[in-house]
């Protein structure tokens, strides 16, 4: 059995070909899950969160805002709306998005649906800021 699998991260604006990796951890809608080579064929819905990629002792973190993972024994494709490597995250922009969402929520005049959108935006911003921290440590 091969000890690595091919990983591609596909977003509407870019395709990241990660090449051969040994381990992948991604956020499903039911919590984090890990993928090792030889995984059973699966299709898993992804939530906002952190993607962790391991290959030959190197670890890489990425922020995502959800999508789904298509898993085969030797090939994994993540179809996600956004994917940003920890070191590429613009923390200031995330901070600004967070402030904006907080402001919106504080206004209280908005409807329930808009409120949910603000909460989602806050979650995404916090997620990006948390993962950006990874690149510093």
């Amino acid at each position: 059995m091969a000890n690595s699998f091919h990983l591609e991260i596909i977003t509407p604006t870019r395709v990241f070909d990660e090449g051969q990796v040994t381990y992948l951890r991604a956020p499903s809608t039911n919590g984090l899950f890990g993928v090792l080579p030889g995984h059973v064929d699966a299709m898993i819905a992804l939530d906002v969160g952190e993607i962790k990629i391991e290959r030959s002792g190197m670890v890489k973190y990425m922020a995502t805002s959800g999508g789904y993972a298509e898993i085969r024994a030797d090939h994994v494709q993540l179809l996600v709306e956004t994917a940003e490597a920890a070191e590429a995250i613009d923390v200031q922009r995330a901070q600004a998005a967070l402030e904006r969402a907080k402001q919106h929520l504080a206004d209280k005049t908005s409807e329930l649906e808009a409120e949910q959108q603000d909460l989602d935006a806050m979650e995404r911003a916090l997620n990006r800021m948390r993962i950006a921290e990874r690149s510093k440590s």
């Binding site: 509407p12 809608t29 039911n30 064929d41 699966a42 299709m43 898993i44 819905a45 999508g67 085969r72």
Partner: peptide
């Protein structure tokens, strides 16, 4: 291919439909 759906087939479709619409719009 027989896939394992997590959390369920319906849930995967439900999360895919809006994404499909967005990418169409794009």
């Amino acid at each position: 291919t027989e896939y394992l759906f997590e959390p369920s087939k319906e849930a995967v479709v439900h999360s895919l439909v809006p994404r499909h619409l967005t990418v169409q719009m794009w």
